[in-house]
Design a binder for these strands. Structure first.
Length: 366
DNA sequence: TTTATTCGTCATATTACCTCA
DNA sequence: ACTGAGGTAATATGACGAATA
């Protein structure tokens, strides 16, 4: 359903690509009345999204008017779904001096997809562009809606659409896909069916991939060029890049997650080993009371450089713990500092079995 | 210069279609 | 023929920055 707000043209008929002529006709019309078209239908033309979006800055009011007579006829068969509907969308003509002709059937028209099924019911937010007001004369102002709401604020529209799932038995070979993808902008518009998601052809995907490798974001110029090259709508190219970036990020997140998992396993193993070593040392101490008679060695961390200094009352640092600290030299045990850009090293104290007083660059008064 | 508005684009989450096993 | 999973095109939403009145 759409509330198409237009200026003038209250008596003009719909045209599949009427928006293309919108600008000039709008300016040429002498009747600058205030007209609202209300309709329900899947007749949005995919190309309109971007073309109109691109024209949005040049035209103030737009409404879609791409309903076809065939679709309208089909809709008539099902208008029982809407009790007080007739053949054409409701038009709220606010023109005080231009009464709506009686022969124009103002109605809420339920339009269904090409197979006529309406199984999916009434969905407010699906296929937003499918709107038309028909029998409005030779042109209308198209309102497009695939763009985000905040970017279509001037169109004053709401879209409701009946849609259904098509049969899936049609062939889906590559040629078909390519043809469908490349022709979607025209075919679907013409038959007025609800827009369906179509896979891009391999060639299109490959081309987009190549382009993505060069730059993962698009300038408007690049977007238009790609769209033209691939016979897609600019919006499709834009969406493809957005989804591609999202996929890349998701994949990277998965890689990072896997890497952190391995890090966790490594650290857990190291922790287990250290605990075991500690137990062995304690056992050794109990069994050999003379073994640990060396002066106690304490580890203190310098708050300024986060280095751990071995301070002892003697130079006898050759305690068994020294073997463990050397294991961490040069951060070799920190597995998080490389490929993924993730690093745990900033949160882990670095163990350097150096003589604090000799090698520390800072002057500590303590 | 500051402020409000509009517009375009982005990231993110979600939906829904399509394909395939 | 049916079904569930996975991939992905498309949509919804909010945030942000640039341009402009």
């Amino acid at each position: 359903m759409e509330l198409g707000l237009s200026l003038g043209d209250a008596g003009t008929a719909s045209k599949p690509f009427g928006f293309m002529e919108k600008s000039s006709k709008l300016t040429s019309k002498t009747n600058l009345g205030f007209c609202m078209g209300l309709s329900i239908g899947p007749n949005h033309t995919p190309q309109e999204d971007d073309q109109d979006k691109e024209k949005r800055s040049n035209s103030d009011h737009k409404s879609d008017n791409t309903n076809t007579s065939a679709a309208a006829a089909e809709a008539n068969k099902r208008k029982s779904m809407a009790e007080d509907t007739t053949d054409s969308p409701i038009q709220l003509d606010l023109l005080p001096n231009t009464p709506v002709p009686r022969n124009q059937n103002h109605s809420l028209t339920y339009l269904v997809s090409d197979n006529g099924n309406t199984s999916r019911g009434f969905d407010v937010n699906r296929f937003p562009a499918a709107v038309v007001h028909e029998d409005q004369g030779d042109q209308d102002v198209a309102a497009l809606s695939s763009s985000p709401p905040n970017s279509a604020t001037s169109s004053f529209q709401m879209d409701f659409c009946m849609y259904s799932s098509k049969g899936r038995s049609e062939s889906h070979n590559e040629a078909d896909q390519a043809e469908r993808a490349s022709s979607r902008a025209s075919d679907e518009d013409e038959n007025g069916s609800a827009r369906k998601k179509l896979r891009l052809s391999k060639e299109q995907s490959a081309f987009l991939e190549e382009s993505f490798k060069e730059h993962n974001t698009l300038t408007p110029k690049q977007k238009l060029a790609l769209a033209k090259e691939l016979n897609l709508r600019p919006r499709q190219v834009e969406v493809w890049f957005q989804n591609r970036r999202a996929r890349t990020k998701l994949k990277q997140t998965e890689v990072d997650c896997e890497y952190l998992k391995r890090c966790c396993e490594t650290l857990t193993e190291e922790n287990r080993r250290l605990h075991k070593e500690l137990q062995e040392l304690r056992a050794l101490k109990t069994s050999n009371p003379f073994y640990m008679q060396l002066p106690a060695t304490t580890l203190t961390m310098c708050p300024s450089c986060e280095r751990v200094a071995t301070t002892s009352t003697s130079t006898a640092a050759a305690t068994p713990t020294a073997t463990t600290t050397t294991n961490n030299q040069n951060n070799t045990a920190d597995p998080t500092s490389k490929t993924t850009g993730l690093s745990l090293s900033s949160t882990r104290p670095r163990f350097y079995p150096f003589s604090h007083t000799q090698t520390h660059p800072h002057q500590h008064t303590s």
